[in-house]
């Protein structure tokens, strides 16, 4: 395996691991399931999921800037 190919292989493995972690994090969101806890008057489960789904486009926007605009 050449240097470039090895680098691509490592990049793919890294992306696969990151993707797996992201899927796992998304999956555990509903575990925050406490009907007795509220944040700013919003049930914890709803607040936590809402926060997560708002964070995602922010993170993607930053990632887009880093990958496509900044270089």
């Amino acid at each position: 395996m050449g240097v470039a190919e090895r680098k691509r292989s490592i990049e793919r493995k890294f992306m696969a691991i990151v993707a797996l972690i992201w899927v796992m994090l998304s999956a555990v969101l509903p575990l925050v399931n406490r009907p007795d806890v509220h944040v700013f008057g919003i049930p914890l489960l709803w607040f936590w999921v809402m926060l997560w789904v708002f964070v995602v486009p922010v993170v993607l926007s930053v990632a887009y800037y880093v990958l496509e605009v900044a270089p």
Partner: peptide, 20 residues
């Protein structure tokens, strides 16, 4: 009620995967 949250979550997950 709360089960509707699966729609919110799967969209966020899908766009992240699609980005890459």
């Amino acid at each position: 009620g709360a089960p509707v949250l699966y729609i919110w979550i799967y969209g966020a997950l899908a766009y992240t995967l699609a980005f890459f």
